[in-house]
Computed example of a mutant assay.
Amino acid sequence: MPDTEQGETRRRGRNETEEERADRMWQELIQEVRVAQMGVQILFGFLLTVVFTPKYDDLSHTNQMIYIVTVVLGACATGALIGPVSLHRLVSGRRVKPQAVRWASRLTLLGLVLLLATTCASLLLILRVASDDSFVPYLVAGVVLWYLLWWFGLPMWARHRYTTR
Rank of each mutant, 00 (worst) to 15 (best):
Y138Q: 07
S105R: 07
P98S: 04
I126C: 06
L127E: 13
A100P: 05
Y56M: 10
R165G: 08
R11S: 15
K55H: 08
P98N: 13
T164N: 12
S92D: 15
N15L: 15
G79Q: 09
G39D: 12
Y67P: 05
L47G: 07
D23L: 11
T62P: 05
V129I: 08
S86L: 15
L115N: 02
M1W: 08
P137D: 03
V136T: 05
V91D: 11
V91M: 12
G111D: 11
S122Y: 07
V40F: 13
I42A: 11
L81A: 14
M25W: 01
F44S: 11
D133T: 02
L107Q: 05
G74N: 09
C76F: 15
L48N: 14
Q41L: 14
G45I: 03
G153A: 04
V85I: 09
V136G: 03
I42L: 13
L145M: 14
A158Q: 12
L29M: 11
D57P: 03
L123N: 05
A22E: 01
W146R: 05
S60V: 01
I66W: 00
V144G: 04
F52P: 06
Y138K: 03
L139I: 15
L149C: 03
R34T: 08
E28W: 05
L90G: 14
V96F: 00
A141C: 12
L43S: 06
V85S: 10
R10D: 04
H88C: 03
T163C: 03
L154S: 02
S131G: 09
L123C: 04
P155T: 11
M25D: 12
A22I: 00
V85E: 13
A117Q: 10
R161Y: 08
Q27S: 08
S86V: 15
Y147C: 02
A80P: 03
H88M: 05
L107D: 01
E20H: 01
W146P: 00
T53S: 15
T62W: 09
F152H: 05
A75T: 01
G45S: 09
V72L: 07
M65R: 10
T119V: 06
R165F: 09
D57Q: 09
Y162I: 07
R94C: 07
V129F: 10
L47I: 03
T17M: 13
G142H: 15
E18Q: 13
G7K: 09
G142I: 10
